[in-house]
């Protein structure tokens, strides 16, 4: 018997888990950088609107 289906199933499991292992940290890094960008934008907006009446 060749047991081909078992071999294919095992290699598919390996590929899927490795793919997850590759994608998951990249998504985390992207999420952290996006959060930092949003924080910076928010901080910038707060600084410009700190004394809105003093500019008038």
């Amino acid at each position: 018997m060749s047991y081909q289906n078992y071999v294919i199933a095992a290699y598919c499991v390996f590929a899927v888990v490795m793919l997850w292992d590759f994608v998951a940290p990249r998504l985390q890094v992207r999420q952290q950088l996006r959060a930092a960008r949003l924080r910076a934008t928010r901080a910038g907006r707060n600084t410009t609107n700190e004394f809105p009446l003093s500019r008038e």
Binding site: Q28, V29, Q32, L33, R34, A35, A36, R37, R39, A40, A43
Partner: peptide, 15 residues
């Protein structure tokens, strides 16, 4: 990055 999220260098990196 998660631990250092409030630091300036992360903000610069995200620019």
């Amino acid at each position: 990055l998660r631990r250092e999220s409030g630091k300036d260098w992360v903000a610069r990196l995200a620019e």
